[in-house]
Design a protein around this nucleic acid. Structure first.
Lengths: 339, 339
DNA sequence: CTGTTAGCGCATTCAC
DNA sequence: GTGAATGCGCTAACAG
């Protein structure tokens, strides 16, 4: 590696090498009209040969914007941030924006610290990614750049927030089970303190009510783990052997349920349909059978968040509020059998 | 949100508000000696009140370094980059470095594009993260900042590369099985085209040879999937019912093996010990029983990579080559029974 | 068409 | 102790 020994080449290097002034070189490289084709070509050739890359900082200093967006996450270990980040990168990619990633690890102090760092770097905007869909404390209204909250909405309605529509997800899951001819549907989900658990349950109940039905048994809410899925699934199948479908609040829970079902000799999907939530590929694609699930469309959410930031940067008067983004159903073998 | 309406406050704003010159304000804020305690305090107070944050770009323009490192990954979807990134953040955190994240998605074109962007931003160094341990093409020797390759080493020995020691991992896994009293050990792993598969196998064979033993049956190498683990596990247990341990090349494969073992009435760990690889928490902590696994210490690897970049930035004459980092064994219920 | 000038925000000489 | 001047690399006004 060339240990920084070779200083980066500057515009002035290129200019002198091409035998023109700095400003002419600048114009040539930025493809301005007021420069002859000959010199333009010559400058470009020299720049190419010297592998000149313009110093974005210097440029940003002039322009007042850095072409940089901060992604402040509390979910670095997690599966939510990654697709959101990818979506944001997609949206930014075309526009020559780069992403500063900061991991607050769910700690408010660290978050403040990183926020200051990002502002210090004059990011043009900030996307705040949480790991739950419960509202989180706002970063406040006094931040000099646009802020968009993704996944975890802000608790301040003046902020712009994007979050997946969990109620619609719950509804979608149950409607699919109904469409598969199931009528005796139970629900196992995670920590009832999570908005996600409550919202999905609400959506499920609404869909059932529309069909003149109710959940079989009380919804079983405890942990977002496979273990809980196994335990709850076993209990449920013994107490209510006549159920024909289980809507699970997460893919992990669903995998536990699949395990218990097999242990108890229930065949999925013929005898029992199982649907998960999150569409986490490592889980849904490796289970036996593969798992039907609700996909929160996080990549789209990331893209939308990036677009919102863009709009605000460009001066659009974005109005606050939480936008619920649509989710989608991904059907696999755990609800519809292969023939 | 304050849509960028409020321009960021500059040093000159602070200076005039405090009634001092720009340079005095600068000295006060940077805690230089040559300024009276009184004015220093006053400037600091004013800066605090106006929530002044120094423009890192302007500062970087002077200093010639940006306090920024690029992380060029081909594994954004993946589980390898996250812990590496976390480790790097840990190492950088203290030093006020921020990380630019770029996802090349395994595409060489995109990688070149991002590389240019990073250089354009005058990052002080670059960490390149791959998704396999097979050597990857070098970015070349003509990059004006230090480059460190993490996980996937560079194919150019002049580059600095850090990669987990898979041979040691294979050895460690088998030594653990031997220590548990197992002697009839088989191996199921992923795609034989991966260096990881070959290296782990090599380590396993070495450990067995040291004990005067050999693998039972031929190693079964095909895919890094749970499905393959199930299929291979079932076949193996039927062909060689007397094996007492299976070393699996990934946690996914191990989970498949656990599944098959249960189907065939083999009890884990009493009758059959199973060990995985990667220590991917979502998999190892949710299996039944929980899965003993080899942890590649990726967070440490990320930290080391960051430190290497640091050293090189500070001018240390780092020498090239691939450094194999130690891995560790994490023991759970799939190899040692609870009492 | 090309070159000269000014200035983005800041740290750092150097006079005062 | 403090402030005026210089320059980091670049672009956008001008003037030639």
């Amino acid at each position: 590696m060339a240990n920084g020994a070779t200083r980066a080449v500057t515009l002035s290097d290129v200019a002198s090498a091409a035998g023109v002034s700095i400003s002419t070189a600048s114009k040539a490289l930025n493809d301005r009209e007021d420069v002859s084709a000959a010199t333009k070509a010559r400058v470009l050739a020299v720049a190419e040969r010297m592998s000149f890359t313009p110093n974005v900082m210097a440029r940003g200093l002039l322009a007042g914007r850095t072409g940089t967006v901060g992604l402040l996450t509390s979910d670095l270990e997690g599966r939510f941030m990654i697709p959101i980040l990818m979506g944001a990168e997609d949206a930014f990619g075309a526009g020559r924006i780069n992403v500063f990633l900061c991991d607050a690890r769910g700690d408010a102090i660290r978050e403040q610290h990183h926020l200051r760092e990002l502002l210090s770097r004059r990011v043009d905007g900030i996307i705040v990614v949480g790991r739950q869909t419960d509202p989180r404390p706002s970063l406040g209204q006094s931040i000099p750049v646009p802020v968009v909250y993704a996944y975890a909405p802000s608790d301040d309605p003046r902020d712009v927030s994007l979050t997946p529509d969990n109620v619609a997800g719950g509804r979608l899951a149950v409607e699919h089970l109904l469409a598969c001819g199931r009528t005796r549907i139970a629900h196992i989900s995670g920590d009832p303190a999570y908005a996600a658990a409550q919202d999905r349950l609400e959506g499920a109940r609404a869909a059932l009510a529309d069909a003149g039905l109710e959940l079989i048994g009380a919804p079983l809410l405890s942990e977002w783990t496979e273990q809980w899925g196994r335990d709850a699934g076993a209990m449920l199948l013994q107490q209510h052997p006549d159920i024909d479908a289980i809507f699970c609040g997460s893919d992990q829970i669903a995998r536990g349920v699949l395990d218990s079902a097999r242990d108890l000799g229930r065949s999925v999907p013929d005898d029992l349909a199982v649907i998960g939530y999150d569409n986490w590929s490592i889980l849904v694609e490796n289970s036996r059978p593969e798992l039907t699930s609700i996909d929160a469309n996080l990549q789209l959410l990331g893209r939308r968040a990036a677009e919102k930031v863009f709009e605000a940067i460009d001066g659009a008067e974005t109005q606050g509020g939480t936008l619920q983004l649509p989710v989608r159903l991904v059907i696999r073998g755990s609800t519809i059998a292969h023939r």
